[in-house]
């Protein structure tokens, strides 16, 4: 086996075209049995553990059921209840607000970091690891740490404020409704800024260096390079990060659950339910109240929201040019993953 020593350089590789399966043997679909078999595990697992639960959740959402007693069919009652449930709408609002106040600063900071790291500086790989590490750490542990940093009574954040602004200063981070949202957003920002920065960095490095060099020679300022070259050329990569942040933001759970789980009524997101996200509310209804029917209705509402957001994102960023969902998604994701894949391949040499 000498196959692995003959890698073709990526830059000069000819366009690969898939090879048709050997035509000489059996007829019909049987001919392709190894191919179907090889992709089967994903589809089987998805049908059983992905598609079936989603369909089944429709069934459950038409019932009243606590998981132990008998299931009672209630038609659309859960949904009509949902529409008038102020807590549900609050959870939608909270999720949206936390998403906004975390995603916008996060992506901006990530872009700046990527841009700075892209300069010709030393210790680049150390910086990359340092920025990426928050993303690989368990959120349970870190929520506990953040809980103590932002504690009203003994937290580091407040003693820092008091040190700067006098002993009257201090924010009730975990009891004030806005404090709760900001603290959760800070955790999200802390965790995902480095991740997005690394993605942007990969995107940056795909931009021809000649462009930068000529700009430098022309004496363009750093800010000008950033705003006139970097950002416009990164547009597709930015879209990718917006979409992943949206999906992540809509399913926010661990941070508020661990941060506020010990308050009076658990899993309702603290004061004014300010930290109650949609997934947390779903969890609360299903596994604190044991209202499985309603929990399923909430998850369907979430599903609709995710779909709407995904569509809006595509429309916004891709504009008029290509608005067919089916075309945009693959090209978008592939642009990103190809870059990652190429990079990963390099790293093994």
């Amino acid at each position: 086996m000498t196959a692995h020593t003959t890698g073709v350089p990526l830059r000069s590789k000819p366009r690969n075209t898939p090879i048709a399966a050997s035509k000489t043997r059996k007829n019909g679909f049987l001919r392709w049995w190894p191919h179907y078999l090889s992709i089967a595990p994903f589809y089987v697992l998805f049908l059983v553990f992905g598609a079936f639960p989603i369909v089944f959740s429709i069934v459950i959402s038409f019932t009243s059921w606590d998981g132990m007693g008998k299931m009672t069919f209630v038609g659309l009652d859960q949904y009509s209840y949902l529409l008038g449930d102020s807590l549900f709408w609050q959870s939608v609002w909270n999720t949206f607000i936390i998403w906004v106040i975390s995603t916008i600063p996060m992506l901006f900071i990530a872009l700046v970091i990527a841009f700075l790291l892209h300069q010709n500086i030393r210790m680049k790989s150390f910086y990359r690891v340092a920025f990426f590490i928050p993303n690989v750490t368990s959120m349970v542990a870190m929520a506990i740490v953040f809980g103590s940093v932002f504690s009203d009574q003994f937290g580091l954040a407040n003693s820092f404020l008091k040190w700067i602004a006098g002993s009257d200063a201090g924010v009730q981070w975990l009891t004030n409704p806005w404090g709760i949202k900001v603290t959760i957003a800070i955790m999200v920002i802390w965790r995902f800024t480095g991740y997005n920065a690394i993605i942007y960095l990969a995107g940056l490095q795909a931009i021809s260096t000649e462009l930068y060099d000529s700009a430098r020679v022309d004496g363009a300022s750093t800010w000008r390079i950033f705003s006139r070259i970097t950002v416009p050329l990164l547009r597709p990569v930015i879209l990718f990060t917006v979409i992943t942040s949206t999906i992540g933001g809509l399913s926010l759970f661990t941070e508020p659950q661990v941060l506020l789980g010990n308050t009076g009524v658990p899993n309702l997101g603290g004061t004014n339910s300010a930290g109650l996200t949609i997934v947390l509310y779903q969890y609360y209804q299903a596994f604190n109240n044991f209202d499985f029917g309603y929990g399923s209705a909430i998850s369907w509402a979430l599903f609709v929201l995710v779909a709407v957001f995904a569509l809006i994102n595509w429309r916004l960023v891709m504009g008029r040019r290509e608005d067919q969902l089916g075309q945009v998604a693959p090209s978008l994701i592939s642009r990103f993953t190809a870059r990652r894949a190429a990079a990963t391949k390099e790293s093994t040499r």
Binding site: G147, S148, S151, D152, Q153, F154, Q172, L174, T175, L260, N262, T263, G264, G270, T271
Partner: peptide, 8 residues
């Protein structure tokens, strides 16, 4: 005291 969390 408006102390909502056990740690506080």
């Amino acid at each position: 005291g408006n102390q909502q969390l056990p740690t506080d």
